[in-house]
Design a binder for these strands. Structure first.
Length: 870
RNA sequence: GGGCGUAUGGCGUAGUGGUAGCGCGCUUCCUUCACACGGAAGAGGUCACUGGUUCGAUCCCAGUUACGCCCA
């Protein structure tokens, strides 16, 4: 409460411009906020005073679309609310410049490619700059070192980052722009490597030689999280195997893997094959003896019920191979072509001949050829049946994944460890998801994990796995005991730096060492955004104050990747949740309810709606959609937002135009008190909604109050506020003070949504208070203290009466300013005394010369007699 | 095939176990002393479908259908 001696802030003299407009507010205020450091994080605050946000780093090599504007606005609204409620908000911005999109963009833009075996070149100048970003041929690209490649990446992404930042500033994100990070910066590499080395030291990271899902285009291993099933055309081929008692027919979609066949399998309960289990059959063409085995995963009703197991046609083959302890006769190379040498097992002259013919062929050509051969030999019987079936793809790839045996790095994620899985589920229960049902997606993913997290990638651009391997006297690497760097040397690149105790001359020679050439999955870095954003290595003091974070905003599509992997790394590293709240935004759909995506070509560039409608308007549209709910791109909503912003400016100018007669500080009139009491309820409810991460409801409450305020209250009291209609000075002052008090509160309720319009108005009269965005969030008690609660509801009654006047005039097609000679207000007996209190205001606004108030059933204005108009 | 979500006037959306709100659009009007980037009044909905619980269901339960997303 203000004391009697000081003038309350809302009574400060106001200086509104003659003509108000939303035009130009963005340029004016984004500069002003920056100069005043309104959003700068004050690191002197204690942990309890800090609200920290693990902001999603946008991919800078992609382009922004309105979906980004949508979800980042949701976060900003929360940040602004928290800042106003007294928190010191840590709201950094990251740039994701790691990964394949950037790699490809740099290749095409500069005409280079990365070869980590090459040495670094000082002051390197690329062959050209500004490629058209269409794919250039690998053969035309100049090979350069990893460090040079990364430097070019940083150069290119720095440009993108500037554009992104400019857009975010225009949108009004209250980010502290001195707190940014990049996922490919030396610090990010060091953070990723340190976390990895910790995982290794604790036994959570390990290597394994295993069949691995492999993308032949990108020539890299692919993790479970990057898989997707796509329906593909395929065909069943019926092949005859030579059994002890004649032909055994199997059906396969992959006849080209016949040389990799290691067994036939049927279900243990399948009557038809009981006699064959334990016996051997011979493969057609290749004459290899393979056993007939039983396994529960064999499907009785699929094809002939018996299938061939190959190394490896699909993930089921891997399970059979592992569980049944079968030999490995892999025939596919990393390039997706049939290997030059026949696998062990093929020994017949004809078998070797056939294999030699297939060697070097792609899977596709090999299939064509082997079908011809099988047809000639009569082993392929019946018609080839075309089908459509789901096939595993790398989500960024366009060829089906193959399975090859490779040495890879993994991090334990609970896929093979029930205890860890249980712990992760427990952590998920402790995390407050907004909306709550999103937790189920997390739990489904954790429970559906089938293996550990494969983190090594056979790419060049990214965070190197920071280990070396000692070479023995024969030059064979010892993979079981990797050599690791000490943490103070991070970041390191094992392909250009030597491990402790060696120098470069020992690289690749017997008794020397080799560096690991693989890099990490980009999620291995992204999963550490709390550590990156918080300064785990670079600023431990700050890190202690912001971690665990308070909020992780993100999209629903990356719950299984980003959210899960971050929870995992945090659990492994510190045994706690990385944040206490996860706010999940929905999708932006185009007006036809289709998800916006680049491939559909229906993307809206975010600068356009901001240009057309203004930042406040675009923010209004975004904020009107609840978390977790998809929203349509709706320019109509933006127009509504723009109208709201304009109305706020105009209503404020009007409300501030009424002078408060000197000496008065009280809101004495019942209807004025009623308005303030109603607003107090709005403050209570809106605050509650915000605290529940329901910004939409907070906006709705503020908005609907505001429109009532302008449409009814302002109309009702303006004559009195002007001092007309026989109002006393005290009555005039009551209205003028109430208007200012209400405005003072409403502006703050709108500030998170309409940062530009609200700060503009604030600056007209709250000149000593600084930006509204550092003002205190309103409290209900500011309004309701000292008021008579029995006046609550009076404004609603006045509105009903006011509607009656308007309807009568509208029906008569008369102006709202038409004179009314007489009218009768009927009201329930209990309300008559109350209504008498606003009789004067009602007569003023309605231009009613004589108003009778009588008892009736319900509140109603009747017997309206309009003055004669010539 | 499994999981999750959604279904409310032409469109976009709130909401509640007891007469269904709002915005856009539409119709009819009204200006210019805050706002025509405005204001007023009005028309328009059997709350997807089928059952169940209940005195009463748009809301709770079960099932169906459609759509979206995720997973297999």
């Amino acid at each position: 409460m203000t004391t009697a001696s000081s003038t309350p802030a809302f009574l400060a003299p106001a200086n509104a411009p003659e003509k108000v407009t939303v035009e130009g507010l963005e340029e004016k205020w984004s500069v002003a906020w920056d100069e005043a450091g309104v959003y700068r994080f004050n690191r002197a605050a204690t942990r309890e005073q800090i609200y920290s946000i693990d902001t999603p780093p946008p991919t800078v090599s992609g382009s922004l679309h309105v979906g980004h504007v949508f979800s980042y606005t949701h976060t900003d609204v929360v940040a602004r609310f928290k800042r106003m409620t007294g928190f010191e908000v840590y709201y950094p911005m990251g740039w994701d410049d790691n990964g394949l999109p950037t790699e490809r963009r740099v290749q095409n833009y500069f005409g280079v490619r990365c070869d980590p075996t090459l040495p670094y070149v000082e002051n390197y100048v690329p062959p050209f700059e500004g490629g058209d970003n269409k794919s250039s041929k690998a053969a035309d690209q100049i090979a350069i070192s990893r460090r040079n490649f990364i430097e070019l990446c940083e150069k290119l992404t720095a440009e993108d980052e500037k554009q992104f930042e400019a857009l975010w500033r225009r949108l009004g994100l209250s980010v502290d722009w001195s707190q940014t990070y990049q996922t490919i910066s030396p610090d990010a590499v060091a953070v990723s490597q340190k976390a990895f080395l910790n995982n290794l030291a604790r036994g959570e990271a390990y290597q394994s030689m295993a069949p691995t899902l492999w993308d032949v285009t990108f020539r890299t291993a692919v993790a479970q999280a990057e898989l997707e099933d796509r329906d593909q055309p395929g065909a069943y081929h019926r092949l005859g195997f030579n059994g002890p008692d004649g032909k055994i027919f199997i059906e396969t979609t992959r006849p080209e893997l016949l040389p990799a066949c290691v067994a036939l399998v049927a279900h243990p309960d399948d009557e038809r094959y009981q006699g064959l289990f334990g016996k051997t059959v011979r493969t057609p063409l290749f004459d290899v003896e393979v056993p007939v085995v039983s396994h529960r995963l064999a499907q009785i009703d699929k094809g002939s019920g018996i299938a061939m197991i190959c190394t490896f046609g699909d993930v089921t083959d891997v399970i059979w191979w592992r569980e049944l302890d079968l030999p490995n006769r892999a025939i596919l190379g990393f390039d997706g072509r049939i290997l030059a040498d026949a696998p062990e097992g093929i020994s017949s002259e004809r078998g070797l001949e056939v294999f030699a013919e297939l060697a070097g062929k792609t899977v596709f050509s090999a299939k064509t050829r082997i079908v011809e051969l099988l047809t000639e030999s009569g082993d392929l019987v019946g018609e080839i049946r075309n089908i459509t079936h789901p096939v595993k793809f790398f989500e960024k790839g366009d060829k089906p994944l193959e399975i090859v045996s490779t040495r890879q790095w993994y991090i334990r994620n609970g896929g093979r460890d029930a205890d860890l899985r249980e712990k992760l589920i427990e952590q998920g229960k402790k995390l407050a998801f907004h909306p709550d049902f999103m937790r189920v997606r997390y739990e489904n993913w954790v429970n559906g994990l089938t293996g550990d997290w494969l983190i090594s990638r056979q790419r060049f651009f990214g965070v190197p796995i920071p280990v070396w391997y000692a070479l023995d006297a024969d030059g064979e690497p010892n993979f079981d005991a990797p050599l690791v760097p000490s943490h103070d040397l991070l970041p390191i690149d094992p392909s250009s730096q030597a491990p402790a105790g060696f120098d470069e001359s020992k690289r690749g020679v017997p008794g020397g060492f080799i560096g690991e050439v693989d890099i990490m999955d980009t999620w291995a870095t992204s999963s550490l955004t709390p550590q990156l954003a918080g300064g785990w290595i670079s600023d431990p003091e700050k890190y202690a104050k912001v971690y665990p974070f308070d909020l992780r905003p993100q999209g629903q599509d990356i719950i299984r990747t980003w959210l899960f992997s971050t929870v995992l790394r945090s659990e492994l590293e510190s045994g706690q949740l990385p944040w206490s709240n996860a706010a999940i935004s929905g999708w932006i759909l185009d007006p036809d309810r289709k998800k916006m995506s680049k491939s559909k070509g229906n993307v809206v560039v975010p600068a356009e709606p901001i240009d057309n409608h203004g930042a406040d308007a675009v923010r209004y549209w975004a904020a009107a959609a609840r978390l977790g709910t998809d929203a349509a791109f709706d320019e109509g909503q933006m127009k509504v937002g723009r109208r709201l912003a304009i109305k706020v400016l105009n209503a404020a100018k009007f409300a501030l135009s009424f002078e408060v007669p000197a000496g008065y500080t009280e809101v004495s009139e019942p209807v004025d008190q009623a308005m303030l009491l109603a607003l107090a309820d709005v403050v209570t409810e809106a605050t509650k909604a915000f605290e529940n991460y329901d910004h939409t409801k907070a906006l709705e409450l503020a908005e609907s109050f505001f429109w009532n305020f302008t449409d009814d209250y302002l109309e009702l009291v303006k004559e009195r506020a002007y001092g007309q209609g026989g109002a006393t000075e005290a009555q005039q002052a009551s209205a003028a003070i109430a208007l200012r008090k209400a405005l003072h509160v409403m502006l703050r309720l709108f500030a998170p949504f309409l940062p530009y319009a609200t700060d503009e108005v604030w600056s007209w009269w709250q000149t000593d208070a600084g930006s509204i965005h550092r003002a205190a969030w309103p409290k209900a008690s500011e309004l309701s203290d000292g008021l008579d609660a029995t006046n609550r509801g009076l404004l609603a009654q006045a509105s009903v009466a006011l509607s009656g006047v308007r309807k009568a005039k509208s029906d008569a097609k008369a102006s709202m300013k038409a004179e009314v000679v007489s009218a009768t207000l009927k009201a329930p007996a209990a309300q008559i005394d109350q209504l008498a209190l606003i009789e004067s205001d009602l007569r003023s606004v309605g231009r009613i010369q004589a108003l009778k108030i009588v008892a009736g059933d319900e509140l109603e204005l009747t017997d309206i007699v309009l003055a004669e108009v010539e």
